[in-house]
Design a protein around this nucleic acid. Structure first.
Lengths: 193, 193, 193, 193
DNA sequence: CATGAATGAGCCTTCATTCAT
DNA sequence: CATGAATGAAGGCTCATTCAT
């Protein structure tokens, strides 16, 4: 069991450091935005910069891990919950887009790298976006079949729309009515009836 | 007379420098995006950085001048032309939003400072935005009166929508279908019928 | 018997690792010069850096082993061959110095540590140099006895001369006429007649 | 006079800083060798790293300035003095090569960049080397015409020989007999008779 | 004995802005 | 008013070596 050769034991300090880095990064991203210096993240995590770079060779890799391990799970959970609890496909799509928007503003400045990930498909953030686009496609397809959404749209468009709106509003509370207004416009844009 | 010290005329070289700076900045912003170093703009203009800063105390001030003096005029002209030539208020609004989008992508990275101008009302870019929002309001109002646009919207929302779309597409040609798709969504969002 | 704990046999994997490290180092030194990172050598050898350091506590130790086990043998062979086949002591010395020069450029950057070894007599590379100096002394002595070399010289001087010339030429082909020219000067320097 | 427009007044602090940087660099190069960090030179000069880089964009540029302004002048002076005072062309050449060797060891590690300058002709150090090679050619030519030096040699070879010897000896006192010995070999190499 | 994670000083460089001249 | 030198805090990143496992 424990000597399965393929499951090399991860060193205790490595795990600990990884967790500390992720925690520190989450804190730093939240408080100072996505542009905090890597060095300062390392310092806050109590590790040297080398350790930080060993675990996450780029800022995007760190961000991707954070998004995937912390927020992504919650988002997919939300997807399941919406799918289970909202019988109206139109309102389900709306709820999903709302959740997407909140996820995209988990950190100040997050929309930017997400947009870049879109541009360069080899980005570490790419797969995450892809999955979310597919989820959006799922909700959109259901809404279209139910006659609640225009048939000319696709999930990518709505994902990008949500991203643009998240960018416009920013992470601050201040932009929240901006976002609401834009979401309303977008909803009128895809909704039928 | 002309050497009356109180009758300060603007020195000829000062005027010349201002022009050269604006030209150099336009070129630099176009070719390298909004993030060129101020030093390089100064160098291209053939002046020292001090001179650049004397004329334009911040990058935003430089940008604002450029936008106002170069592109803004063209945009307002466009407004007049649309108003004069397009009898259908809905299509006029659409044309205006298209022009707005092109203006917002005059330089790579321009949407960002425009959004910030929105956030901080004392920004030098604020007034320019304000005027454009009012223009948008004008077109929107006409469209609403003609029953071509939803009455729940206001110019600010559409301006921000256009900005968000411009951001999502970026200045590159690559984002052009992205922009088209989002514009379509937005049009469906405000249009009636 | 074989599990008598006091009769420490070298573990099979240890031997294998040592060989792999030497091979990887030879490759890396050849392709990237002597300044490759130790990490990358370890990686190419398929071992962890710790293992690399266990076998060779410093870069110089690794180099010394490589030189001794790989190239040194060949060089001493060359010595024997020259001694056996070249009846003219002057030409033998010349041939030896040429072989020395080639050995000194086995890797890009090799002359530097050899010179340092010279400076610090406790260097791991010291013995290797010493043996080669003695060999040079042998050839030189023979040449001197045959009246083919100046009697004021010693092997150390010629060894250092060859080293300096190897340094000047570098490992690249580009320096090859440089080396030829300097070798000519040096030959005229020691040769009689 | 003072308003010659082409002779822009150099700012006092600029001159002061330049001098301080050169002094600090000379000290640092002498005491710690050529590989001191640029940052530490800046610190020792009492300026920020930016100032250092403004004056000397690369380490080589700094070195070149130092060599040219401090040592080079002295070397050319030496050339003149030798030419004036030494009637024997062979001994003049010898004296010149000796001076060359001392110049090449002004700092620990100096031969290395000089060799590189040789390799890449666009180096900032290139011109300095070129002038010295020409000077060497001058002395060598005179010696050749006087029948004191072999006619097959050129100044470049002797310059490189001197460089190689300087490298082999290093800047320390310890290498001084090494250098003497090698110089002897080289002298026997070029001298006639 | 092997592993590879951790360390962390140190490196070079940029640039918005100020200020001496 | 123009000039351009000075500033200096960051920033990202590397790598030889040690040590926990």
């Amino acid at each position: 069991m424990s000597n399965d050769p393929s499951a090399r034991r991860v060193r205790a300090d490595a795990t600990r450091n990884r967790v500390q880095i992720l925690e520190a990064a989450a804190r730093a991203f939240e408080e100072e935005g996505l542009n905090v210096s890597m060095d300062s993240i390392a310092k806050q995590a109590g590790v040297g910069p080398g350790t930080l770079y060993r675990h996450f060779p780029t800022r995007d890799a760190l961000l991707a891990a954070l998004l995937l391990e912390e927020h992504y799970a919650g988002l997919l959970e939300t997807r399941t919950r919406i799918a289970a609890q909202e019988p109206d496909a139109g309102r389900a799509l709306d709820a999903w887009i709302g959740a997407l928007g909140r996820w995209m503003n988990a950190y100040d400045g997050l929309p930017e790298p997400l947009r870049l990930a879109w541009t360069r498909p080899d980005s570490v953030l790419g797969p995450a976006c892809q999955t979310l686009i597919e989820a959006t496609d799922g909700f959109l397809g259901a809404a279209q079949r139910a006659g609640k959404a225009r048939s000319s749209l696709n999930g990518r468009d709505l994902f990008l729309g949500a991203l643009a709106i998240a960018w416009a509003g920013g992470a601050s509370k201040a932009g929240s009515d901006t976002q609401t207004a834009l979401h309303d416009v977008m909803r009128s844009g895809w909704a039928v009836g």
